[in-house]
């Protein structure tokens, strides 16, 4: 059934994967509690009320991490690992993403979720899904390549920025300071993955009888409230994937990870040898894009 479980350990039998009705119910109950807690956190932080009292819920789960986790619970594991990583100082964690191309069905829901989460305008996309076709008829196959920012260890974009507006955080995320960026687009040219797009200041409902109000609603990228109105950053700035930094800081996984229908996208702390991403990076199926350029991406693909 799953590549992951096979890799994780031969010591456990196939029977382990069968989930009894009781366990399922228990899991469901746990999930419901988790969801409720999540909603509570969200509403608390949104309302700016009782922020202090809600923080204990962000604390790591005291339960030890089970080595063997069924596929449908990988998201819980990533969630717990995220909490664990957030307890460490930023320089001791290294965020990384792994995308399993055999699981990706090319639904583009990550692209859409990302657009919605970050309220991306026309022409700005952080995570397109590239469709690759192999072979000639009748022997053909397709593969999908979601392409977020690679968050390179050695990023060519950062080297060229004339005002140091784009830089690498201690936790490995390549970010842009919208207020510093002068919009010269040097970094866009310099990125070997085409992972940076420019905000041209366009709107979807431009040219229609009314510019819809929701297009002017602020996005909360980098935890900053920025209304997208004329001439204000991020308009006329370069924009890029930031691993949903604003969500990470609140203890949530990146939107594309949460939304992936086939659980093909994994996220976690690469510097933690026990994390899911660390396990996956050890796979022989692992691949990175354009290794020959020496950019050392922190985005891994399983082919």
């Amino acid at each position: 059934m799953s590549e992951l479980i096979k890799e994780e350990g031969p010591q456990k039998g196939a029977g382990q994967q069968k989930v009894s009705r009781r366990n399922l119910l228990a899991d469901l109950a746990k999930a419901t509690v988790g969801l409720a807690a999540g909603v509570a956190v969200l509403s608390a932080s949104a309302g700016q009320v009782e922020a202090e009292s809600s923080t204990p819920q962000l604390a790591p789960s005291p339960a030890p991490l089970a080595k063997q986790i069924p596929q449908d619970q990988l998201i819980l594991r990533m969630q717990r690992e995220l909490y664990k990583a957030l307890q460490k100082p930023a320089e001791q964690r290294q965020w990384a993403m792994v995308i399993d191309q055999r699981k990706c069905v090319g639904c583009s829901s990550c692209t859409v979720a990302c657009k919605a989460e970050n309220k991306l305008p026309p022409g700005v996309v952080y995570r397109p899904v590239i469709e690759e076709e192999y072979g000639t008829f009748p022997n053909v196959s397709r593969r999908f390549l979601p392409r977020p920012c690679m968050h390179c260890t050695n990023p060519p974009c950062i080297k060229v920025c004339p005002v140091a507006a784009t830089y690498k955080q201690k936790d490995g995320i390549v970010v842009i300071d919208y207020d510093k960026c002068i919009g010269c687009r040097y970094c866009i040219s310099a990125c070997p993955y085409g992972a940076r797009t420019f905000d041209w200041g366009e709107y979807y409902t431009e040219g229609t009888p009314e510019l819809e109000k929701y297009e002017l609603e602020p996005a909360f990228e980098y935890g900053e409230k920025r209304a997208r109105v004329k001439h204000n950053s991020p308009i006329n700035n370069t924009r890029k994937c930031h691993f949903c930094l604003h969500r990470l800081n609140e203890g949530m996984l990146p939107m594309c990870v949460t939304t992936c229908i086939g659980r093909a996208t994994y996220f976690g702390d690469k510097s933690d040898p026990e994390s899911l991403v660390s396990e996956l990076i050890g796979s022989s199926r692992v691949m990175r894009l354009k290794e020959e350029l020496g950019t050392e991406p922190n985005l891994y693909y399983l082919v």
Binding site: K159, C161, A165, K180, C181, I182, G183, S233
Partner: peptide, 26 residues
């Protein structure tokens, strides 16, 4: 005029990135 934010041209003289060729060129 090619800059997205031309009003921020002075950033190039204030915020430094020694590895940027463009920075040196300005």
């Amino acid at each position: 005029i090619d800059l997205g934010h031309p009003e921020r041209f002075w950033h190039t003289l204030v915020y430094r990135n020694m590895s940027s060729v463009l920075e040196w060129e300005i």
